[in-house]
């Protein structure tokens, strides 16, 4: 007796989307990425973060151009702007010498253009943070996927390695290593060598953060039946990793690298602040903060590089959080 009603009812529910050849818009599917993108675009805070990020990246790329029109060469001394008579060596004029010519004022002692130095500082900061994150992501994702998919002793070894790396006193190690770096090595010298070294130290020791997350995600993905379906069709392991698992890992990789970048910005600033990062005269935000400590009576010297770090870190974090929310399957 129950058969007739269900027979009538079910073709409608089950074939609901089967009907409708006359609605062409229904045919083109929307991928999860497209859905996440739509959600992201509606997230005002994340979009503000993204705007700041794009602005910062443009500033870093076009630093020479910006400085040419709005400032002075970052290494140019302007001792005429510094008060040598009173002996304070502070900038002449109110507010640290801020004027239309010197938008952020000038440095004490040498009178270098602070605006130019902050603008140029963004290059070092972002370059090191991006490259170090890239290195972490490459190592972390690769080892995370391998550990999660292979399991067994491979997983045991990689997981223990992650524990070791996370327990490593990175800052102490970085200070020690940076102290003994020669001026020339691997055919590189000066700050080029230092950039490479900082990228290597920061990137190499941070991979377990990404690695753990990717391993966890891979562990749960591996149990999904679509992986078995691919295997039962005769797919080889590289195909399963690249075509079945990786597309599902792009979102977490993207989210957690966005969140790793700001912590790398801070790390680089800390190293430069401690004098083991980028060496003067190349401007870096951490280095400028360090220089400014002695001149605490002239707050503008500390304020501008400090604000630059603050906004960079905040923007990445806001954007990263928005990205995570947009991809979060629970909110779907």
């Amino acid at each position: 007796m129950t058969v007739p009603p269900t027979e009538v009812a079910t073709p409608q529910t089950d074939a609901l989307e089967t009907e409708g050849p006359d609605s062409p818009k229904a045919i083109e599917g929307r991928s999860l990425t497209q859905i996440a993108w739509r959600r992201l675009k509606r997230d005002k805070v994340a979009m503000a973060g993204a705007a700041v990020l794009i602005f910062l990246i443009l500033v870093a790329i076009f630093a020479p151009l910006i400085v040419k029109f709005l400032g002075h060469p970052p290494d140019e001394f302007h001792q005429d702007l510094v008060d040598t008579e009173m002996g304070t060596l502070g900038p002449k004029g109110a507010w640290g010498g801020i004027s239309w010519d010197y938008l952020f004022g000038v440095e004490p002692v040498n009178g270098r253009d602070l605006f130019s130095r902050v603008v140029y500082g963004s290059r070092i900061s972002l370059l090191i943070a991006f490259l170090a994150t890239l290195l972490s992501v490459i190592i972390g994702s690769t080892l995370g996927i391998i550990a999660g998919y292979a399991g067994g002793w491979v997983d045991a070894v990689i997981s223990r390695a992650m524990d070791v790396f996370l327990a490593f006193p990175l800052l102490v190690f970085a200070i020690a290593l940076a102290g003994v770096v020669p001026d020339n090595a691997f055919g590189l010298q000066g700050n080029t060598l230092r950039v490479v070294m900082l990228v290597f130290i920061i990137g190499f020791f941070n991979w377990p953060y990404i690695g753990r997350i990717i391993r966890g995600q891979t562990l749960s993905l591996r149990e999904r039946e679509f992986v078995d379906a691919a295997r039962s069709l005769g797919a080889r392991t590289p195909r399963i990793l690249a075509r079945e698992l990786l597309p599902n890992l792009v979102a977490p990789i993207l989210v957690y690298s966005t969140l790793l970048i700001p912590s790398n910005v801070l790390f680089e600033a800390a190293l430069s602040f401690l004098g083991v990062g980028i060496q003067p005269p190349t401007p870096s935000w951490g280095g400028m903060l360090s220089d400014a400590v002695t001149f605490y009576t002239m707050p503008h010297f500390m304020l501008f590089p400090g604000l630059a770090i603050f906004f960079t870190v905040l923007a990445f974090n806001l954007f990263g959080d928005g990205l995570r929310d947009a991809f979060d399957p629970r909110g779907r």
Binding site: G29, S31, T33, R224, E225, F226, D228, A229, P247, N248
Partner: peptide
Amino acid sequence: YSSLNPRHTV
């Protein structure tokens, strides 16, 4: 729900 890869089209 788990036997079809959510990132692939039909």
